[in-house]
Write a protein that binds this DNA or RNA. Structure first.
Lengths: 343, 343
DNA sequence: GAAAGTTAGGAAATCGTTTGCCTCAACTTA
DNA sequence: TAAGTTGAGGCAAACGATTTCCTAACTTTC
């Protein structure tokens, strides 16, 4: 491990190169007018000393820190990760570093993080969370721009980037109709959950509009495989004729698949199945592999990052930005694999 | 959204309170000797202006930034998250903020992140990753301490915190032996994968030592449910008498459970089942719920954070630190639920 | 009432960098 | 040879805080 070396400053570099600090700075940043020989001499000295510029000191003077804060309101989870990663990537390309803050559903903690981030003079803040439901804004009148990703702010003037879940649900329905299914049921999560509500409503409307109203009222429960299995039992016990089930998420869909198989129903021959989230762990292990709706979370994060960068540079784009979902077809809806259409 | 306000400096506060900046600083930090009335006046001014201290400026002068970098070498995944969260929590309690860097398996990207972090003068770095295998150190002779969490460094003098997977595997075996199983098979991930190797070896040795050598040689494959199902088919086809299967992870175990049920074998009556990772998504949805080994990833992150803080404060603890895994018993091993023993 | 001791708060140096301005030397040009 | 250009690089003032003196104005005390 060795002894921890002291940090090298630009003064050390300047001394080694035999110039003043100002000159060293100019040499390293390509500013001012210097002989080429001097520039390379300074750069060589910097290299030799392993000089890493003190970003804090530089930022002090430029006013920008090239950092952004990322606050997850709920615990960092399956949905936040891809969003974070997309944002991290997009920001990293712009030389920005990311402060990660886990809010854990605790408003106090969240406010503490906001304060800390402001204190660290982040150039902007991205807020994300586990659910798409609009939330109370993280704070009002902040001195830096804020973008909500996946979650959205209740203030319509805030900038939010969210998946178009309703359109996603309609894509699922369109697909099932396209493969000739007409008696379509919907099993989903808790009734009070925003996503469950949006997806169920969109699916119901869309089905009705196309002349094939839902085979049964939506079954609301939990976002789990266990509920998927239970709901399937309910559905089968009612003897409602059903030739497809659209599920509120992939875990439910997988539960449905397992329960149907256990009951001797074939997927997709007897009953086709579409999930939501396109979570590989579920879609791949499902028997058969599961068709699902992908919200493109990583893209969401990227978009959020770009909007934030734009806002930082003086071009804010307030409002709720809907991003499309797309359908990923697998064996649970039996369509032979077509070349992926441009979304 | 409103106009973005300019950042308030301590000079603004001092002006409003009618004191000098030095005095304002003392008032806000409880230093120096000031009248109580002055202190409150300054604090009130700060509150009124919504003053957030410029951490960069302060740090400039103290040499510490109260930030640490967290680098994930592979992509941020299921294993890194809890580690990150544990570390974030432990560090947050110490007023430290976390820079998140995703290395994405790309050494160049990783080095870039190291440079950036040093430039931002982090007080320390935590390196984590998807696998426990020792990796080449992130860099040599860094001016700040580094702790590896979950992954470990190939340099034994570096500080690494890793789960004691071998001991975990032995706990799984002990448990199966305790419930009277003696013909125990092992199905696990890729043979070249460090975790697969360690767990398989430990299980095999331990079984042999207890006089019940493995019912079959370990079956190496993939970390997936699909492989779990395939391996089960192989096992059953061989007609090897088996009364328990210890699996290298929960996904495999779940695949095994599904395949056994499909083949008419009862879990745990005919064959008991133990997984590894204690991933709730799998353990809860499994039929029956899955007994598993928990690596306590969050605790790992916390420990890493504490070791890092200690190192920052001048008390490094070099070496490989093994942290215990613990057994979480569920219905797949049929033991009636006992009050959870203190691990 | 003067010397000594307290106390409250200000001035200025400092941290590491950037940048605008200035100087000095070398070179043109008349 | 004197005056004007130019180019290279140094000086010092920021940036926003902290901290070490330092200086007034009061209290004591004899």
């Amino acid at each position: 491990m060795g002894k921890l070396a002291r940090h090298v400053t630009i003064a050390d570099v300047a001394a080694l190169a035999g110039v003043s600090v100002g000159t060293a700075s100019k040499a390293l940043n390509g500013r001012g007018s210097l002989r080429e020989e001097t520039r390379t001499r300074v750069k060589e000295a910097a290299r030799q000393l392993n000089f890493e510029i003190n970003a804090g000191a530089r930022n002090l003077h430029t006013g920008r820190t090239y950092t952004v804060g990322m606050i997850t309101t709920d615990t960092i989870g399956r949905f936040s990760i891809p969003v974070l990663m997309g944002a991290e990537e997009a920001l990293g390309a712009g030389q920005m570093s990311v402060f990660l803050c886990d809010g854990r559903d605790d408003p106090i903690r969240e406010q503490y993080h906001v304060k800390t981030l402001l204190s660290r003079r982040v150039d902007g803040i991205i807020v994300t969370g586990r659910r798409t439901q609009a939330r109370t804004p993280i704070a009002a009148g902040l001195p830096v721009p804020v973008v909500y990703a996946f979650t959205s702010s209740a203030d319509p003037d805030d900038c939010s980037v969210v998946p178009d879940e309703a359109a996603g649900a309609r894509k699922a329905i369109d697909h099932l109709l396209a493969i000739g299914r007409t008696r379509i049921a919907h099993i989903t999560g808790p009734e009070h959950h925003h996503s469950a509500h949006v997806r169920a409503t969109a699916a119901t409307h869309h089905l009705t509009q196309h002349g094939h109203p839902p085979a049964a009222p939506p079954l609301y429960g939990a976002w789990s495989e266990i509920w998927g299995r239970q709901a399937t039992a309910i559905l089968l016990a009612a003897h409602t004729p059903v030739d497809a089930v659209f599920c509120g998420n992939d875990q439910i869909a997988r539960g449905v698949a397992d329960a149907l198989r256990a009951a001797g129903r074939r997927v997709p021959d007897d009953i086709a199945l579409v999930g939501f989230d396109n979570w590989d762990v579920m879609t791949d292990a499902c028997q058969p592999p599961l068709t699902s709706i992908d919200m493109n979370l990583e893209g969401l994060g990227q978009t959020a990052a770009h909007l934030l960068l734009a806002a930082i540079n003086g071009t804010p784009a307030p409002g709720r930005h809907l991003r499309p979902c797309h359908l990923v077809i697998r064996e649970s809806t039996s369509i032979p694999l077509a070349p992926p259409a441009a979304s």
